[in-house]
């Protein structure tokens, strides 16, 4: 059974004069202990998707339609009280900048203990023991000393470890990590990713990793969703997507990586940039930047189809597939 299933989710932003759509018909499933990644450029709606899973979209945004089911309970229809039971306890979230997440005027220990005590009835001493244990789990040296320190006394990598420890306090089923390593150095990034991976594996926690770095994604996630302009354009096993990207957008994203060009040669950039919500093109949203766009792409919205490797919403892939199947019939 699916632990989490997002079903035709639409998120809109409501302004006085107009209504903007941020997520369009987003659907995916997450099994217990599975690790998936959401990739795309800035403005693709990755973070909005992450926030809407815990129903944290603030005004003027709201969930317009669709369902987010956590074991058959619809999160979109829950009261604030029910939501508070889920946030942190069932679904926990890690944000990009650890300095923004931690309160600078409260010691790390007090923040961790507060998290435990607001969800469970445990006295301070026991909560402190749990917190120290979790700090040790994320490989923080001398956790007893760190417990009484303030966030500014820790380095960036250390702070992100504290965040991961705080997320683990209540043994959640799902961790949503929104660009957890973007603010960190490569060496620290490698450590944090290994730590996240080990924690998810050991405790059977499902992970939703939001990132724009396909290198990071390939290390951690089993399955990848590629997003563009509020829609999923490709979904499939991470390795398959990286080795054999189907839609032109995923190809462009991969080709833009410096590793993909010979040293000193020009990189293969995707021309243009992500459209803003207000200027969403008709048809397939990627068509103004797509080198293979046809008239059909400009007017019609592509449906999701299975390409044999991954699920793709793209007319080019669709046409290629139908050509192939016709060839097969011809040979028979």
């Amino acid at each position: 059974m699916n632990l989490l299933s997002v079903d035709h989710l639409n998120v809109n932003f409501h302004f006085k004069k107009r209504e903007l759509t941020a997520l369009i018909d987003v659907s995916f499933n997450l099994k217990r202990g599975e690790r998936i990644a959401i990739v795309g450029e800035s403005g693709a709606g990755k973070s909005i998707l992450g926030f809407s899973i815990v129903n944290l979209i603030g005004k003027p945004g709201y969930i317009h339609s669709g369902a987010i089911k956590l074991e058959n309970k619809d999160i979109t229809k829950m009261s604030l009280r029910q939501l508070q039971d889920i946030r942190g306890k069932r679904i926990a979230m890690i944000f990009q900048d650890p300095m923004m997440t931690l309160n600078p005027v409260i010691t790390i220990g007090d923040q961790l203990v507060e998290t435990i005590r607001s969800h469970t009835k445990i006295n301070y001493k026991d909560a402190k023991n749990i917190a120290i244990e979790k700090l040790r789990n994320v490989q923080i040296a001398s956790p007893e000393r760190r417990f009484d320190q303030y966030p500014h006394e820790l380095s960036g990598g250390m702070r992100q470890r504290v965040i991961i420890a705080s997320v683990l306090l209540l043994n959640p089923d799902i961790i949503i990590a929104d660009e957890p390593t973007t603010a960190l150095d490569v060496t620290i990034q490698a450590e944090i990713l290994q730590l996240l991976l080990a924690i998810c594996r050991d405790n059977g926690v499902a992970l939703i990793l939001i990132s724009h770095d396909l290198g990071v994604v390939s290390k951690v996630a089993e399955r990848t969703l590629v997003m563009y302009a509020g829609q999923i354009v490709e979904e499939g096993p991470t390795l398959e997507i990286i080795n054999d990207p189907q839609p032109p957008y995923t190809q462009g994203l991969l080709n833009a990586l410096p590793q993909m060009a010979l040293p000193g040669q020009r990189l293969n950039q995707i021309k243009g940039s992500m459209p803003s919500l207000a200027e969403r093109p008709s048809g397939c949203a990627f068509h103004p930047r797509c080198p293979y766009a046809t008239d059909k792409c400009r007017t019609q919205q592509p449906e999701f189809i299975y390409s044999g490797v991954s699920s793709v919403a793209c007319f080019m892939v669709e046409d290629m597939l139908s050509e192939f199947s016709q060839d097969d019939e011809g040979q028979l």
Binding site: H212, A256, I270
Partner: peptide
């Protein structure tokens, strides 16, 4: 910057 924008600036 994003990967694709990175490529533009680097080029």
């Amino acid at each position: 910057l994003d990967v694709s924008v990175q490529a533009q600036v680097l080029n």
